Amino acid sequence: MNIEQARFNMVEQQIRPWDVLDPKVLDLLFIVKREDFVPAAYRNLAFADMEIPLGEGQCMLAPRVEARLLQELGIRQADRVLEIGTGSGYMAALLAARAEHVTTLELRPELAAFARDNLQRAGVANVTVECADGSRGWQQRAPFDVIVLSGALPRIPAELLKQLRVGGRLAAIVGEAPVMEAQMITCVADGVYNTVNLFETVVPVLDNFAAAREFSL
């Protein structure tokens, strides 16, 4: 496989047609090597328009979904980011390339270790991987400028919204199959939030939230 040609095809045939047109985001997809975050058994599928299995029922989101969320968040250099659902560490690496620091939470110890190894090999130094249940966020480092959920959940927990700074943005895929929608929620004032629906999709539910029962919104 010609890796660079496959990467180019991913960007031009999957990602750009999904209205990902920010040149900074597109450039990142060439800089952060997706194939370095994929399990060895699936390396040849690193650029395919599909969710890559990570084991234990978890997966990497399709490239176009990751890229679109990254574009909509508009990460800034001074942003402090919380990601919930580390998976392979790839989305954390993309976020970290634009942000000051990323804290990423992974419930499963094996995946947390996999992500740490991937990030270390990639030379990403501004990401902290915590093995933790992210269903109530990460109060220890709150408030955050950006919160990203790398997977779906039925509704947004109130605890997560409270961990956004004023002006902070939260990106999540909300709902239950077969009806899910990516949303951007912005904290416009203390306790006041504006929600914009971005696109419809269906992705696996984060296991942090599979058993959670107390939600708001």
Rank of each mutant, 00 (worst) to 15 (best):
M1Y: 11
E4W: 05
A6Y: 04
F8E: 14
F8M: 04
V11A: 02
E12M: 15
Q13Y: 10
Q13L: 11
Q13R: 10
Q13E: 09
Q13V: 04
I15L: 13
I15D: 02
P17E: 02
L21H: 02
D22I: 08
K24C: 13
D27A: 15
F30K: 13
I31L: 11
K33Q: 10
R34H: 04
R34Q: 03
E35F: 07
P39H: 08
A40E: 10
A41D: 13
R43D: 01
F47L: 07
A48M: 05
A48F: 12
M50S: 04
P53T: 02
P53E: 08
L54A: 13
E56Y: 14
Q58L: 07
Q58G: 00
Q58H: 11
Q58W: 05
M60A: 03
M60R: 14
L61S: 10
L61V: 06
L61H: 09
P63S: 07
P63H: 00
P63T: 04
P63G: 01
R64P: 00
A67G: 05
L69W: 04
Q71F: 09
Q71M: 15
G74Q: 14
R80V: 15
L94P: 15
A97N: 15
R98I: 12
A99E: 05
T104N: 13
E106N: 10
L107Y: 01
R108S: 02
A113W: 09
A115W: 01
R121D: 15
G123Q: 01
G123A: 08
A125Q: 09
V127K: 00
V129Q: 06
V129K: 03
V129I: 10
C131M: 06
G134N: 06
S135Q: 14
R136A: 11
G137L: 03
W138F: 15
W138T: 05
W138H: 13
R141W: 07
A142Y: 07
F144I: 09
F144R: 05
D145R: 02
D145K: 07
V146G: 01
V146W: 08
V148G: 01
V148H: 15
V148E: 07
S150Y: 08
G151D: 05
R155Y: 03
I156E: 03
P157G: 02
A158V: 12
A158C: 15
E159I: 03
L161M: 13
R165Q: 15
G167Q: 02
G168V: 06
G168I: 09
R169M: 06
R169F: 06
A171Q: 06
A172E: 01
E176S: 08
M180C: 07
M180R: 00
Q183K: 15
M184Q: 07
M184H: 07
I185A: 06
I185D: 10
A189H: 04
G191R: 04
V192E: 08
V192Y: 04
V192M: 12
N194Y: 10
T195R: 14
N197T: 10
L198K: 11
L198F: 04
L198D: 04
F199T: 09
E200K: 13
E200D: 09
T201W: 01
V205N: 03
V205E: 06
V205D: 11
V205M: 11
V205H: 12
D207M: 14
D207K: 14
N208Y: 02
A210P: 04
A211Q: 14
A212F: 14
A212W: 09
F215N: 00
F215Y: 13
